[in-house]
Nucleic acid binder design. Structure first.
Lengths: 203, 203
DNA sequence: AATTATGCTAACCATCGGTCAATATAATGA
DNA sequence: TCATTATATTGACCGATGGTTAGCATAATT
């Protein structure tokens, strides 16, 4: 068994697969080491603990996703609801080719393991806040009823859309017919959900 | 150190405190045994594993809460929104005197530990579904716009209200001024949130 | 060629949920 | 009353977990 000179990138690649398949909690350090073809001790030589290793994996996911999904050009859109819909569509399509990446990011941000909550908040809180600011900037142009608080309205809309996106992404994961038709269904239900908020549910 | 004859109730009382304070995952079986003043092996003599112990604790919480909060009389109310508001208010007040019970129930149903998800779904799925049916029955009487799907509207309303209730309950936990004024603030913000959904946000 | 820094691992550690074998107490029936 | 059966109780142990240590092997620097 020859010694190998590893750089962190190779380890991170292997661990990414394991975290995506088993989730943070169920990816044991022994599994991670085996997947990377190195000893467990070497994992802890390169990363101070499992959390830091995970956060490094997550970092690459975010960067890769940001570039490949065109996150930055997305916000150049002028219409809040159009931009949100485009974002959902992009995520949906991207998921078909990179399910692992979306899986990792969903676990990290929408089903955050208890033990990682403070770390993720500390590390990505500013990024999330900044992202939210951009969305809020777009939301400014949405005309609201006089009696509606803009901050509250923004929270309601994003809460609902996030919930809906993740629900469908989860269902897609457990279903086979990952067809274009599925996306159309998704968008249709999503938009009727959205228009409830925009125009009210009551007669 | 004399031997003692324990019945399960005494163990459950002690474990309830520990689960409330530390949460399911961070309440180790050693801690639980110490808190109950018995050996760890005895814990596993009375309960087949940590999950079953927890579910027994949870069972008592649900029963106690159901009785003391008057869950059953609540649904006799005829107006969906009034009933929901009353429910929030009751929970809020009850929390002041029994924060531990609310804490345990919130973790179990609104921040379910990954490892308990299937167990809780299996054990309480029917109860939750039945409860939802009762709420839906009340919701039937809410007049909706013709283009709005009732099922979707119900999901939107409950999603939002649950989110809001838990958010405030969490904030209350981390704040000192648990005054009546806080409840008024809560209800005010809650109702304006709700009226966004009822009447729409857009001009 | 000697020294320093890094790559790398086997063996170990405490803690975790959980088991086992043994003993002490209580309940039962003759 | 006394033997038998059932239950209460424990310390010592188990495999797996995340993580550490000590030491050797390789590479880089002087």
């Amino acid at each position: 068994m020859p010694l190998q000179l590893y750089d962190k990138e190779k380890i991170l690649d292997a661990c990414f697969d394991v975290f995506a398949r088993y989730g943070y909690a169920n990816a044991s350090t022994n599994m991670l080491a085996d997947a990377a073809g190195i000893s467990k001790a070497l994992i802890f030589h390169h990363f101070k603990n499992k959390k830091e290793l995970y956060l490094n994996v997550l970092d690459r996911c975010i960067e890769k996703g940001r570039i490949e999904m065109g996150f930055d050009t997305l916000l150049e859109n002028q219409n809040f609801f159009k931009a949100k819909e485009k974002f959902s569509t992009i995520k949906f399509h991207y998921y078909k080719n990179n399910p692992d990446l979306i899986r990792v990011m969903r676990e990290a941000f929408y089903a955050t393991p208890e033990e990682l909550k403070t770390e993720i908040q500390d590390k990505y809180g500013a990024l999330i806040a900044n992202n939210e600011k951009e969305w809020k900037r777009l939301f400014e142009k949405v005309p609201l009823r006089e009696d509606v608080d803009r901050e509250q309205a923004f929270r309601l809309v994003t809460l609902t859309l996030d919930y809906f996106d993740n629900k469908y992404l989860l269902e897609l994961e457990n279903s086979d017919d990952s067809e274009e038709a599925y996306l159309q269904d998704f968008l249709k239900e999503r938009n009727s959900f959205l228009s409830m908020i925009r125009f009210g549910i009551e007669k």
